[in-house]
Design a protein around this nucleic acid. Structure first.
Lengths: 116, 116
DNA sequence: TTGACAAATATCCATCATGGATATATTCGT
DNA sequence: ACGAATATATCCATGATGGATATTTGTCAA
């Protein structure tokens, strides 16, 4: 009965978190987001088109990201660019802080191959 | 056709990762694992009984954890204790290292409320 | 000791997130 | 202008999750 995922509070779904992260630096368009996520994760994370465009719609609806005009350099008008909103940045910060606490715990337990 | 989750390679499902983490320090029994995860995450992460016992079975099957004799202090023979295996510890280290890289990226983008 | 309650494990089911296939439109290169 | 490629969008089968429920077993007090 209660919704399973709020999209507004941690823990964030991995797709939502990595989309926010990929937009933290600068606006990107749909496939550019997917490419950046795959690049940054060294191929470990792949975002299918279903998850990608569904997540983008939900995140716009939730006010985490919004449509922005295309950067002048890009001429292809098919691309829809998205930028992170202050709300999205706030949520990204909260989830990142949570991850940092998890990692701190893991480090304290010696759950790392080396000091990273 | 290809299995969606391998359970042997990152990215790990959150349930599997946190179970491994909760067992890194010492063996625990089923509900003790769930309690520890909820405690360590300050109530953010909850593990339902479905996910808990299903994950435990899969992880034993995959050789990530194994049944261990109960610590002497505990008298209740209903409890089944699990300990992490070397394979589980190795996987935990790999996934933790991946998280560390994600966090490093997030920090570089200023996606943290403060230095944590 | 016995009866009531609580704890622990286990299974079932509805819901929802995911990835890939597919569809559609539009642009680019030649 | 035409074919190929790009980008977005939707659909569907699969799988992961949480909670309800079931079952067993132990604890505790009277």
């Amino acid at each position: 009965m209660t919704p399973q995922s709020d999209l507004q509070v941690p823990p964030l779904r991995p797709a939502v978190y990595h989309i926010l992260l990929s937009l933290a630096g600068r606006p990107r368009h749909g496939l550019g987001i997917a490419d950046e996520i795959e690049r940054a994760s060294e191929g470990v994370l792949e975002l299918g088109p279903g998850t990608l465009y569904r997540s983008l719609s939900e995140m716009v609806e939730a006010g985490l990201i919004r449509s922005v005009p295309a950067p002048s350099e890009s001429a292809d008008p098919r691309r829809k660019y998205y930028g992170i909103t202050p709300e999205g940045r706030e949520l990204l910060a909260r989830e990142t802080a949570r991850l940092a606490r998890v990692l701190k715990t893991a480090r304290a337990l010696g759950a790392l191959p080396e000091q990273a």
